[in-house]
Design a protein around this nucleic acid. Structure first.
Lengths: 145, 145
DNA sequence: TTTACTGCAAATAATTTGCAAAACT
DNA sequence: AGTTTTGCAAATTATTTGCAGTAAA
């Protein structure tokens, strides 16, 4: 599943190390967005020591090659995902931290209007919006009563 | 011009120090968004030593009181602005850094749909969208030719 | 006079970097 | 063999925190 990405890198002259394979596999096997530290935790059970610096370097390389996308969720939280993943909206819950992926279609009209009215070419392909998810809304209401 | 904010804080029980006045004045005198460090640089020419920690603490307080809004521009760049007017969209140009304020109305439909389809209560009042402004688009085209 | 606020310096947290050793090709 | 890449530890950057002294109210 991650072989496609590995071959792509090899053909571009990158060396394929077990560390790089593991990182790509970890990202590719899930649709989730992962922080560098999460990838580290997840993999260090399998290997004794995969250094965090190597993870940062590999992620940076993947983003440069267009194989991964980087998402700054604010508050110092940065996550990465494999690009196969088409464009989508990240709905980040301020209370529980959950990230919901919403349909990109909801933004096409906005993108069009920003271009028309302000001449601004917005990159809306992986934006993050903050708010409260439905579960936390319910919990807030229960607490209030 | 910043007196309004100062009085608002005083009435809420905060003590008004020269440091706080300067920081508020600096933010209020411009429409620009400023990073903590920028405020520091801008003010330390006027005063010998206004500590950066005080700036962070004041900014946090202003945000909590709803007098300023904090904007995480990604890549470790966090800026603050006085919330002088109602909600708006920040259009941040990736090339020249210019921030255009766009009409909040453009988001009402999106907010409604996120609530309907995902149960997500998004806070869209001061979001930042990234892209290329019209001026930079033109410059890019000229360079290409 | 009371206690919030400031400055300072040390602590954090997330990421980056220099460099010698290890390992792809 | 020759050059990338890794691990480690130290450096960086942005922000936060503890604490004793200062100053609003």
């Amino acid at each position: 599943m991650s072989d496609k990405y590995v071959e792509m890198l090899r053909s571009r002259g990158y060396r394929i190390t077990p560390q790089r394979e593991m990182i790509i596999e970890e990202l590719a096997k899930t649709n989730a967005h992962m922080a560098a530290e999460e990838i580290h935790d997840s993999l260090k059970s399998r290997t004794k020591s995969l250094n965090i610096a190597t993870i940062y370097r590999t992620l940076e390389m993947l983003v440069e090659e267009g194989l991964a996308c980087r998402n700054d969720l604010g508050g110092g939280c940065v996550v990465y995902a494999i690009t196969r993943h088409g464009p989508h909206i990240h709905l980040v819950c301020r209370l529980c931290g959950q990230v919901i992926e919403a349909d990109y279609e909801l933004l096409t009209d906005l993108g069009y209007k920003l271009k028309q009215e302000y001449g601004f070419e917005a990159d809306l392909r992986h934006i993050s919006l903050f708010g409260i998810c439905s579960k936390c809304q319910r919990e807030q209401e229960e607490t209030r009563s």
